[in-house]
Amino acid sequence: MHRHLLATVSSLALASTSFAGSHLWEFHEVFSNADGTVQFIELHILTNANGENFVAGKKIKSAATGKSFTFPANLQGPTGFKYLLLATSGFAALPGAPTPDYIIADNFFSTEGDTLTYHIYDTWVIGADQVPTECVSALNRNGTVTTNTPKNYPGVEGSVDACPPCEGDLDGSGAVDAGDIAMLLGAWGTRNDEADVTGDGIVDAADLSVVLGGWGSCE
């Protein structure tokens, strides 16, 4: 049989059209404590774009530290207005922290100036000293500094204090030392609130145990 293609083929139906990608994720907020053990990077989709699932293989990279994170799989469910939270394990352990969607290495980015990239889709140049490290404030993409508000993909939002009070430092000297022991013994058997570390209503052996357990510098 002689068959000849005279004219083009034409498509009637576009198969399994999903009109999706991963282009629209962008950096939204970063946070770090002074030593970089508590950090998070938050990404966000600013519009109601529900098909930005295809992040597998895309990288978040720090130019200053050379560290990178590769998304292991695509996201599930609609993505419109969603957030992604990448954070250190130190962040994840803090009270008030929403569960990170992904764990990143300590000191993932530099607080001395850095350029963060998400694949080729987004680049955030962060100047030296732009990222606050006083344990509560975060740098937003618009350049403002506000109390940190990390939010994860399921939509859980929280806030952390990366410098919790130094337990046992009764006199606020920055270290748990003999001065604290002296203060505690001076209040022994009383209801002194400052020395009642455990908050059980009396200064006793339980409080002494906390002070001895925290012996040393608060740093």
């Binding site: 009109f19 519009t47 109601n48 774009a49 098909g51 930005e52 293989g57 694949h119």
Partner: peptide, 19 residues
Amino acid sequence: HLFETLDPHGHVIAHESVT
């Protein structure tokens, strides 16, 4: 990566959410 970047089919973005 290049094919995904090109994104020949376009994206659906709810228009009312575009600012």
